[in-house]
Design a protein around this nucleic acid. Sequence first.
DNA 1: GCCGTTTTCGGCCCGACTGTTTTCAGTCG
Length: 567
Amino acid sequence: MRNVEVAWIFRELADLMELKGADYFKIRAYRNAARILSGLDKPLVEIWKEGGLTKVPGIGRNIAAKVSEILTTGGLKKHEELLQEFPPGLLEIMSLPGIGPKKAALLREGLGVTGLGELARAAREKRVRTLPGMGSKTESEIIRNIEMRENRGDRVLLVSAGDLAEEFIEYIKRIPGVSGVEAGGSLRRRRETVGDIDLVAAGSDPQSVLDAVAGHPRVRKMLESSPGRARFYTNWGVVVDLEVAPEEIFGLALFRSTGSRAHYQRLQRIFTERGLKLDEAIKDGPGAAIQEQDIYASLGLPWIPPELREDRGEVEAALENRLPHLLETADIKGDLHLHTNWSDGINTIEQMVQRARAKGYQYVAVTDHSRSLKIAGGLSLERLREQHEQIRKMNDEFEDFRIFTGIEVDILPRGGLDCPDEILEETDLVVASVHSAFKQDRGTMTNRILSAVENKNVDIIGHLTGRLISKREGYDLDLDRVFEAAADCGTILEINASPDRLDLNDLNARRAREKGIKVAINTDAHDLKRLDEMRYGVSVARRAWLEPDDVVNTMPVGELIKYLRRR
DNA sequence: GCCGTTTTCGGCCCGACTGTTTTCAGTCG
């Protein structure tokens, strides 16, 4: 069992206890435990076997016993009992924005709704507004949010699909007769969410591979099968679609699986125009295995990276030999937005720095929250000064690494920043972000953010739109005006690499680049493990056609310091 | 629930915003 799966049980347990009206601090302890467990970079089973669970800060005797129960039995009795009491549909209701435990309980008691479908119907029939404390606005918000969720369908975050795919890939690789296996589909194109996980394997005996995968511990059932192909439903609720092709046509199968449909059709049109057929064109070298390169080469094109295959001009660019030299994760030389235990992070500055050094970075900026964000332990001016003092001392110890003093300063609801300018001025790196009053109207929100973009002490605007993928829409914002101002002022925009944010997204990052705006790709990590999420931000950048020069944290430390001063 | 050379009980505990009200409960970062 993965750490995140154990953490998930505690998160759900906390929600259930909240519905039950349990003690606030107990609930908080469970939530905190969930956060800590998912942040551990060592498998829980190992820590458990070593008897080290209670040594983890935030995990006491009780939670350790529960973890142990989960690891031995695969579940938690208390969790299962509560699920009997409160149907899972109620948890879904509670996960709607604006609906917490009290409103969820009221909806159940007052209207008897126990799931999203029933709730949507009740809202459309204007029954929700009959409940105390609920009116027409709540009603229409409910409908809007449920519809948004329905549109999302069964898509999961790229990170979840990637983790699950990785398990299957490792498993399939070891099946005798398999000479290769790769993810195709939207996972390979690195879209922010993935529907089915498409896998393509090369093997001489397809049926034996499919049979072996049917026995994978995560497979609940086989949905469909045909020669060389099967669809499996997994215990994560995600469908895995596996195709096993002979080695000679593995490249072709992978190419087809990768798509996108629009990209594929665009290429096919070119084949047709030239009087060729895709299948025939690649059968030139008999006996030789077909590579993806061969398919593109048969049209005189260079290989097109999967992230670009969306029919957004990549075929034309390839025809004119002007494909971008896409950014790679290895180009990244530092992380300019992360948190430590000075505010709401889990690890110390030392630990975060040590990990960043191990990753081969040249620098990081420590950007804890500013004073207004009380719940996240925002730093008072005094504490901020103290932290910066400590960082300056730490820097004396390094010759080959630089810690930038920093802050993630709140952009206040009325505009302006949550920290005096004179302090920002002497801070190496300032990220400014919105963390409150998300529902302001377009004009107010735009002006609010512009006040930060135009502040000469602000280096980077963090997670610009505030969206949480398939959970919360971004703020109502005039992006054109923000981009214009950022281009004018030389303000850097962030691609926040956190897999549930990916903000800017691919399209907006591409627009930013076209306006000449520089981008920083930051993890916003709150623990060691999440420093590794840089690659998701890089995926967005690649889908946005970004090259190393577009991204400030590809600069070596000296160049970056000069760049930041020049602003 | 967790934590503790201020140790085994008592502290942990924000505050603005929203939608609903006409003084406030619920939600959220």
